[in-house]
Design a protein around this nucleic acid. Structure first.
Length: 482
RNA sequence: GGCCACGUGGCGGAGUGGUGACGCAGCGGACUGCAAAUCCGCGUACCCCGGUUCAAUUCCGGGCGUGGCCUCCA
């Protein structure tokens, strides 16, 4: 199936061909680990996981290398570490903070059903590589040393600004911040900077005497080169990173290596809003992945990770997404339907549905894929033979992993009912129904309903016997249809 | 101010130069003692104004609205 991807660099959808035949390399900007990952951070994690799965399907699992980094050196980290662990030495505080935060990140996104990347490099393990990049850039005249800093000279690169489609003149005209006196050009950016006491510090490159630390963008240039090479296939991240982060990555990597491109395809997921507003701490609508999964803070419910994932994939990745409780409710209903049918059905080695593969191959059209999925679900209800393909398709999207309805209903334990008592009451009701004592049977049904138990009567197709099944309704605003 | 993205029915959300994807909700019906579930059926949607065209929601221009980015900063 030919794969088409929208390339921010050209502002077009383009047919995708790996640079090295049958070998796909992908780099996605991961988190800066200083705090809980928020729901906006979850979007690229989920979106590029779908792409990873699709690429593995097309090229084979061993032919795709997916690198997603962890940035563990950053001013925000330094500040947060000092704030949270004032009694520890700076270095120990930073290590503690970054390790804890990275572990939390892994826990949170594992619930979203994402595969692990092939390599998850950390910035602090690549300081030497960053130094080499600095050296190379200075040697080639693309960077200069000033007051202990290494700065990239943007005027040395003819097409700087191509990714974000802005010219140097425009950017300089729009600059709102005072320019540091040691910079040659207003848009020059830092590759390396001196460390003050208490800040993380490494031996500086480019002949600088004092210790220092890397600037923001250099870590991704270093890590992508080490793990994927000087030029690779796909680079992904949020649209907010296009400028300056990715623009500067391109500048560093291309100028250091003398290559015409860094990655051939640049993909950016759209921004996320919450209930129609920008997500920000000051608006009080800031929501972390963990809060979604483990608290009732959003939409008065806990949400299973698969529900979060399905809700996220309901919007095309390049579109802005408005994160609402209603989306989660709809996703949960859909997953409940899936779980009712598929729970306990072992996964099969079938191929996923070709139409869904085609939809995903068209620049990851997940909403269309999900719509096709609804049709597959109908077929699978009627025809158990269709379930293998359905399951394989669910697997490709990563939206269902064999969970039961109860699994998909976090917080279920809190509402747990006495199963033996429920079964006794159901038996009594069936008995009353046989006697046509409908008053009594309705009374029992109401009693169960008050306990949060919903009954469903069905006839056994073979015997004609009435079989009653039951489910516990979820708490909160949205009553499931079960 | 500059650059960019988006604006589709009650809601979500694809897509297309000419027969109203799909889901949720809603309505009608079948089935059921009732209820739930299930099944069948039901929708004069494309922000506004111009232009191109036999034909525009789809292309072009302008407007309005929403959002993003605009240097080492949170």
């Amino acid at each position: 199936m030919p794969l088409t991807l929208y390339n921010t660099l050209t502002r077009r959808k383009e047919a995708f061909t790996p640079l090295v035949p049958n070998r796909v390399s992908m780099y996605v900007c991961g988190p800066t680990v200083y705090d809980f990952a928020h729901i906006g951070n979850a979007r690229p994690v989920i979106v590029f996981d779908v792409l990873y799965r699709l690429l593995r399907l097309e090229y084979g699992a061993d032919h795709v290398k997916y690198v997603r980094n962890i940035t563990d050196v950053d001013d925000k980290i330094n500040a947060r570490a000092a704030e949270r662990y004032p009694d520890l030495a700076p270095e120990a505080a930073i290590r503690k903070l970054t390790e804890e935060t990275a572990a939390q990140f892994h826990t949170d996104i594992a619930a979203l059903g994402v595969l692990e990347p092939d390599v998850e490099p950390r910035a602090t393990d690549h300081i030497a590589e960053m130094g080499k990049l600095c050296d190379a850039l200075v040697q080639k005249g693309h960077a200069y040393v000033a007051e202990g800093h290494v700065l990239f000279d943007v005027s040395s690169m003819a097409d700087y600004g191509k990714l974000s489609n802005r010219s140097l003149e425009e950017m300089e005209a729009g600059a709102r911040v005072e320019v540091a006196p040691y910079k040659k050009g207003a848009m020059d950016f830092v590759l390396w900077k001196p460390s003050k006491p208490g800040e993380p510090a490494w031996p500086s490159p480019c002949g600088i005497e004092g210790p220092g630390r890397p600037g923001w963008h250099i870590e991704c240039s270093a890590m992508s080169e080490k793990h994927l090479g000087k030029v690779f296939d796909i680079h992904g991240g949020g649209i907010d990173l296009a400028f300056p982060h990715h623009e500067n990555e391109i500048a560093q990597s291309r100028c250091a290596h003398g290559t015409p491109m860094m990655a051939q395809v640049w993909m950016h997921n759209g921004f996320l809003q919450v209930e129609g507003e920008k997500m920000s701490k000051s608006l009080g609508n800031f929501i972390t992945i963990n809060e979604l999964l483990a608290t009732n803070k959003f939409g008065s419910n806990q949400w299973h990770g698969r529900v979060v994932r399905l809700a996220m994939l309901g919007t095309h990745y390049r579109q802005p997404i408005d994160w609402t409780a209603d989306k989660l409710l709809q996703a949960r209903n859909t997953l409940w339907d899936i779980a009712r049918m598929m729970h306990g059905n072992p996964a099969d080695k079938s191929a996923p549905n070709p139409e869904v593969v085609a939809a995903l191959s068209d620049d990851l059209n997940t909403p269309k894929a999900i719509s096709i999925l609804h049709g597959l679900m109908k077929s699978a209800v009627r025809n158990p033979d269709a379930r293998d393909e359905f399951m394989a398709t669910l697997e490709l999207l990563g939206i269902y992993g064999g969970e039961s309805v109860e699994d998909l209903n976090p917080g279920f334990e809190a509402r747990k009912v006495d199963g033996a008592r429920v079964r006794t009451l159901i038996a009594a009701r069936l008995d009353a129904r046989k006697r046509k004592d409908f008053k009594e049977s309705d009374r029992i049904r109401d009693e169960l309903s008050a306990m949060g138990v919903q009954l469903k009567d069905a006839k056994d197709p073979k015997t004609g016997e009435i079989v009653t099944t039951w489910e516990v309704r979820a708490a909160g605003t949205a009553e499931p249809r079960s």
